[in-house]
């Protein structure tokens, strides 16, 4: 009888003896993993939201860390010092805004804004550099772009005469004359006024009013007659011109 029992016990795997088979535990594990993935998926989808929530509860959260740096006793003092510092920086920034009228030129949209402090006086269309790269002979080349940054009006002229540079002849397929040859002097093409920005760049009028608002110039800023007159009268020498 005893021998029989021993024989029967040996045929049953050890886990079966305790009521749970190895296979059963394995499939329980697989089932658990299946549900586990199901629970974890929304958590993975909200990866950053979970991190954000966790960050709110982490011991060194932002407010107490900042307090730790400042020192709890210095909170009020630090607050008033900051307010003063901001006012000081603000004043310095305000000083950078020109006291007299100034001009802003947008080379992307080909428009201008005449400003006084933070107030707009006049807006309108203009023409700026065409970004044409003219390739001449002897590896000469010119790029027709309007310089950007802050420039100043260095000189103002009524009824300006344009002294044509070399590229103006090369562009028209003409031979380049000597430096002061009469053919270099062109009357009327710059309109009634010109405001000189340095390096040969000017704000002037145009005969091609239909092209205002388009990038067609050789680098100068062309304006319509009325706009040019207002700008000529509004901007004294030394006025700032911001070109972007």
């Amino acid at each position: 009888m005893r021998e029989n029992n021993t024989f029967q016990d040996q045929n049953i795997p050890p886990l079966e003896r305790s009521g749970v088979g190895g296979k059963r535990l394995f499939w329980t594990f697989v089932l658990g993993l299946f549900f586990s993935v199901g629970i974890a998926i929304p958590a993975v989808q909200n990866f950053y939201q979970l991190q954000f929530i966790a960050s709110e509860f982490k011991p060194g959260s932002t407010v107490s860390m900042t307090a730790g740096r400042i020192g709890v006793d210095n909170i009020k003092k630090h607050q008033s010092a900051l307010a003063k510092e901001i006012t000081g920086i603000g004043n310095k920034l305000n000083e950078l805004i020109p006291k007299q009228n100034y001009l802003i030129i947008n080379t992307s949209g080909n428009d201008f804004t005449l400003m006084n402090s933070n107030d707009i006086i006049r807006t309108g269309k203009c023409s700026t550099g065409s970004y044409t790269l003219l390739k001449g002979k002897k590896e000469q080349q010119w790029i027709f772009k309007t310089p950007r940054g802050m420039l100043k009006i260095l000189r103002k002229m009524k009824d300006p005469v344009w002294k044509k540079p070399d590229w103006a002849f090369i562009e028209e397929g003409l031979p380049v004359p000597s430096a002061n040859h009469p053919s270099r002097f062109d009357y009327g093409t710059l309109g009634d006024y010109s405001l000189h920005l340095g390096d040969g760049y000017m704000i002037h009028g145009t005969l091609y009013k239909r092209f205002l608002g388009m990038p067609v110039t050789h680098g100068c800023i062309r304006m319509g007659d009325e706009d040019l007159e207002v700008i000529f009268n509004s901007l004294p020498i030394g006025s700032k011109v911001y070109i972007y």
Binding site: L25, T28, F29, V30, L31, G32, L33, S36, I39, A43
Partner: peptide, 12 residues
């Protein structure tokens, strides 16, 4: 076994 396997991924 079921509870342990259920918690694996969420805890991870």
């Amino acid at each position: 076994v079921f509870i342990l396997s259920l918690l694996i991924f969420p805890v991870l």
